[in-house]
Amino acid sequence: MDHHGTPWSAHASHGQPREPDTMVEYEWQRVARAISADIESGRIPPGAALPSIIRLAEQYGVADHTIRRALRELREQGRIETLPHKGSYVRDQQ
């Protein structure tokens, strides 16, 4: 969003507002979707630890606060659990 609250499309030209009917996907949503897909495919199995926030930020090319927001979404969906000072782990989906 710009400072006026207007959403921007990731595919829009720099400085151009999105078209009104264009679906906006924020970076944290893209990251959450990618991690979720890895969980669904079994690439990240139940019980496995996710990489650190710093490592995930490097992997996805985003800021650490973006990773934190994506992980919050995955926790809210019941896909992962985060243990203080331990990290985030994939929950058993059964």
Score class of each variant (00 low, 15 high):
73 E>T: 02
28 W>K: 13
23 M>G: 14
22 T>N: 13
34 A>I: 14
33 R>P: 11
65 H>G: 11
70 A>T: 07
74 L>F: 01
18 R>A: 04
21 D>N: 11
39 I>C: 00
23 M>V: 09
58 E>M: 13
39 I>H: 01
17 P>H: 02
22 T>M: 10
59 Q>V: 05
35 I>P: 12
23 M>L: 10
75 R>V: 11
25 E>Q: 15
48 A>Y: 05
64 D>H: 09
74 L>M: 01
60 Y>G: 06
40 E>F: 09
29 Q>L: 11
69 R>S: 06
58 E>C: 07
37 A>D: 12
75 R>Q: 07
27 E>R: 13
70 A>D: 09
73 E>P: 14
68 R>T: 05
73 E>D: 10
73 E>K: 07
35 I>A: 07
45 P>D: 00
71 L>G: 08
40 E>Y: 03
62 V>I: 03
65 H>S: 11
57 A>C: 07
70 A>S: 11
41 S>Y: 05
69 R>P: 06
43 R>W: 00
46 P>C: 03
18 R>T: 01
56 L>C: 04
50 L>H: 03
44 I>S: 00
53 I>W: 12
22 T>D: 15
40 E>P: 14
64 D>A: 09
29 Q>R: 08
43 R>T: 00
26 Y>Q: 07
70 A>H: 12
69 R>L: 02
39 I>W: 01
65 H>A: 12
54 I>H: 14
56 L>T: 09
18 R>V: 04
57 A>D: 05
32 A>D: 06
67 I>L: 04
67 I>W: 02
72 R>P: 15
32 A>S: 06
24 V>Y: 05
34 A>S: 14
72 R>K: 15
61 G>V: 08
30 R>G: 08
18 R>Q: 03
46 P>H: 07
30 R>S: 12
41 S>V: 02
56 L>R: 04
19 E>I: 13
31 V>K: 13
58 E>L: 15
44 I>Q: 01
21 D>K: 10
31 V>I: 08
75 R>M: 13
56 L>P: 04
43 R>E: 00
44 I>E: 00
56 L>W: 04
20 P>D: 02
69 R>F: 03
57 A>H: 05
68 R>E: 13
44 I>F: 01
42 G>C: 02
46 P>F: 01
67 I>R: 05
59 Q>C: 08
28 W>R: 13
56 L>M: 08
75 R>L: 14
48 A>M: 06
74 L>T: 01
74 L>C: 03
55 R>G: 15
29 Q>V: 15
17 P>D: 01
44 I>K: 00
28 W>C: 13
75 R>D: 08
25 E>R: 10
33 R>H: 11
27 E>Y: 08
67 I>V: 06
25 E>H: 14
54 I>V: 15
55 R>K: 15
65 H>V: 11
47 G>I: 06
32 A>K: 01
29 Q>S: 09
71 L>H: 09
56 L>G: 07
66 T>Q: 03
44 I>Y: 00
66 T>E: 05
63 A>L: 08
59 Q>A: 07
53 I>Y: 14
25 E>K: 10
49 A>N: 14
75 R>K: 10
28 W>A: 10
25 E>A: 12
50 L>V: 01
66 T>P: 03
27 E>P: 15
55 R>Y: 15
32 A>L: 03
61 G>A: 14
63 A>C: 06
57 A>T: 07
65 H>K: 10
31 V>M: 03
36 S>W: 08
66 T>L: 02
17 P>Y: 02
74 L>H: 00
49 A>W: 08
64 D>F: 04
36 S>P: 05
32 A>Q: 02
